[in-house]
Design a protein around this nucleic acid. Structure first.
Length: 719
DNA sequence: GCGATCAGCT
DNA sequence: CACAGCTGATCGC
């Protein structure tokens, strides 16, 4: 039996709308603190409950990103340092070879700081590729770079058994030799794949660049050599992400091979290669699987099963171990690669597409889809679903609203706003680096999900900052409170504007930084169809005001206004201000509203005592059916004789209804207005915005189901 | 028992 | 349709 409604309401009048969870969702008001660009972005809100470590000096206007390795131990790496695990120091040796001081720098300083230093990259395979290329072909393309490194590593490992040298020694040796090379070579650093001069890039950007080259290389390989074993043979290939392995361990050598070697079972390496068992699938192997693949002898089977079990435990614990950034970097590099080589399946998700997710403006060619199309996958686990193109920022190590696709190959996670379809996948156990968002979103993420402040970086508005070598500027998205539009300007010059969810406003046309050349626009295409052409918010609010006044002749009328966790606050706040009436909200909703930084003058209109007000804010779903409204009506029997509900939604408006600012439904003593109050851009506004930004490419972030849908949307937008 | 995730629903 | 959730079931730990 479904008890949906009956359980939601209690007889206690103050809890009519179930304070429990829906109303926990906070409201925001007309004036959001975030719209005030201020230096406070780096400060913890005064009511923040945690001992947040102090931030970097404001002066740098940058966030440390991966360069965190420079940070004092008590400063950053909010990775559960309270567990007292710092002393583990698993990769101390990496520090020895640091040259870069790791401080995030301004553009001007960057060149100087990066000269001659690979910093955390010293320990990554990429860095070694880079170093090799510096040494052997610093002036151009070094096609054999990867191969050479691979051979080198293999040789060293081959020597292991004879000399008694440990793998760690070999790796240390590699790192040290890297350091020497680094010092003795000049300032010029080239990409080992394409030979491009990457001297002026930050470490992270070098990594991004090299990875992208490797991407291309890999795609090439896959096309040219169908059926070949990319897992183990492609140049520059890495196997997987063995989280607990020695961070210095090169992934050129299969981590599984090393693992088997440690177990004294190297003879089975071939079997693992043949069966394409990588680091992740390894963890899922069962005793039965081992039999199936031909490892039938009891002894080795038991050994392997036991070791896998330990591995699982180790991986589980690993998330709590504070990593030094060099280690992170190594992982980043290797994971990035594995991500691309094993892209995972594009599961059937709400906003997903496997191909054709991006389109060049003005072209109808749909053959510009996901380059990973056709690559085989080793993952069936949802954790490895491919990150959709609208969640990745090309040319940067960033992800946007991509918590459903958490991977260790990234440590910069942007959150445009606090709506479930954008923060989905984010839980309080998040341990994948930093979350970048507005102050309001940060407060909500902390309040509602329990993410500690240490893992959050608050982004300022209308102020260019530098994160991991990429210029980042945020603007108010005119969506829900705290929602951001983010402009990424990577060193490659290809600016990416990510709208998150937004409603185009005139104010945006006056932002000079938005008038920059936009290479790629990741666009909120929620209403990318001419049928959605709803009125301005002000007009709808006016309509609501008039409707309330019209229905208010009856003093026994209860007004209900729908709201999300956050969003649609303007409607009820404006009603309160204009009608000078108090509005009732639940305690949970109030807590959320308190995160929005509304001025006192606005907050005074809110009350926690429902007896003080006949205008109540309720969750949208409460208004979704007359059945639910009827329930509310019954609760207030005797006190109110009429219920008038307002459901602000963009969907209430579609073709043919353009002239009507709202739809009125009535059942007995319950009236429901569906008003086209949208916090997304209308189709007209979308077109205007596209015209305004004139991007070269557009990636629709909503209703993007592949090439066909993209082509349709783009052609609508350019019609 | 708890947290995370998913399908179904509005 | 599904704005942006909510609910209950299931799974893994």
């Amino acid at each position: 039996m479904k008890t949906t409604n009956s359980s939601q309401f209690t007889l206690t009048s103050s809890r009519i709308y179930d304070d429990d969870d829906d109303f926990q969702k906070p409201i925001q008001s007309l004036q959001f603190t975030q719209s005030k660009p201020s230096s406070s972005h780096k400060l913890k809100p005064s009511n923040a409950p945690i001992n947040r470590p102090s931030k970097k000096p404001k002066k740098t206007q940058s966030f440390p990103g991966k360069e965190n390795h420079k940070t004092p131990p008590d400063f950053d790496l909010g990775l559960d340092s309270d567990l007292g695990l710092e002393s583990i120091e698993p990769i101390v040796f990496c520090d020895k070879i640091k040259v870069d001081d790791g401080v995030s720098v301004n553009k001007d300083e960057k060149n100087t700081k990066l000269k001659g230093g690979f910093g955390y990259l010293s320990n990554s395979i990429e860095s070694r590729l880079l170093l090799r290329s510096k040494g052997s072909c610093s002036l151009g393309v070094c096609e054999n770079a990867c191969e050479k490194v691979g051979e080198d590593v293999e040789e060293r490992f081959e020597d292991l058994e004879e000399t008694g040298t440990t793998q760690l020694d070999v790796l240390l040796d590699l790192c040290c030799s890297s350091e020497e090379k680094e010092i003795e070579t000049g300032d010029f650093i080239s990409c080992p794949m394409c030979g491009f001069d990457i001297s002026k890039m930050s470490d992270e950007m070098r990594q991004v660049h090299t990875n992208e080259c490797l991407d291309k290389e890999q795609v090439h390989n896959q096309i040219d050599i169908p059926g070949s074993d990319h897992v183990l043979e492609s140049s520059g290939q890495v196997l997987d992400d063995p989280p607990s392995l020695d961070p210095g361990q090169t992934h050129h050598i299969s981590p599984i091979a090393v693992w088997l070697q440690n177990l004294g079972l190297s003879r089975y390496e071939e079997v693992f290669i043949r069966e394409e068992i990588d680091w992740d699938s390894l963890k899922w192997l069962t005793d039965e699987d081992l039999c199936k693949i031909g490892i039938t002898a009891l002894g080795p089977r038991k050994k392997i099963v036991h070791a896998i079990s330990e591995l699982r435990t180790a991986c589980h614990e690993e998330v709590n171990i504070p990593e030094n950034s060099a280690q992170k970097e190594t992982k980043t590099v290797t994971n990035k690669l594995i991500t691309d080589f094993f892209p995972g399946f594009a599961g059937k998700v709400k906003k997903s597409c496997a191909t054709g997710a991006q389109a060049q403006v003005g072209k109808t060619n749909s053959n510009n889809g996901n380059k990973r199309l056709g690559t085989k996958t080793n993952f069936s686990n949802k954790k490895f679903r491919d990150t959709p193109p609208w969640c990745s920022i090309t040319g940067t190590p960033f992800r946007v609203d991509a918590f459903k696709y958490l991977r260790r190959d990234c440590s910069h996670w942007f959150l445009t706003h606090f709506h479930a379809d954008h923060y989905g996948g984010l839980t309080k156990s998040f341990c994948h680096g930093k979350i970048y968002c507005s102050l309001i979103t940060a407060k909500l993420v902390n309040l509602k999900i329990g993410i500690p402040w240490e893992k959050i970086e608050v982004l300022p508005l209308n102020q260019k900052i530098n994160i991991a070598g990429v210029d980042v500027t945020c603007f108010d998205a005119n969506h829900c409170p705290g929602a951001l539009i983010i402009l990424f300007e990577p060193p490659n010059g290809k600016a990416i504007l990510h709208t998150g969810d937004f409603r185009f406003s005139e104010a945006m046309t006056k932002i000079s930084s938005l008038q920059t050349h936009v290479h790629t626009l990741v666009l909120d295409t929620t209403y990318c169809d001419p049928q959605y052409d709803f009125p301005k918010q002000e007009a709808v609010i006016q309509y609501v005001l008039e409707a309330i006044q019209a229905e208010a002749f009856n003093p026994k009328t209860l007004f209900l206004i729908g709201s999300y966790t956050i969003g649609k606050e303007r409607v009820f706040m404006e009603v309160a201000r204009v009608l000078r009436k108090k509005i009732y909200v639940t305690a949970a909703k109030m807590r959320v509203l308190e995160c929005l930084g509304m001025p006192k003058e606005d907050m005074q209109w809110l009350t926690l005592d429902e007896r003080e007000s006949h205008i109540h804010v309720v969750p949208m779903w409460t208004l979704a059916s007359f059945k639910r409204l009827k329930h509310v009506s019954n609760m207030y029997m005797g006190r109110y004789s009429l219920i008038v509900a307002f459901s602000p939604t963009g969907w209430s408006f579609s073709k043919g209804k353009k002239s009507s600012p709202g739809k009125r439904w009535q059942q007995g003593t319950i009236i429901r207005y569906e008003v086209p109050y949208s916090e997304h851009s209308s189709f007209t506004e979308l077109k205007e915005f596209v015209k305004f930004t004139s991007p070269e490419n557009i990636i629709p972030s909503v209703n993007n189901h592949g090439a066909e849908s993209v082509t349709k949307m783009i052609s609508l937008l350019s019609s």
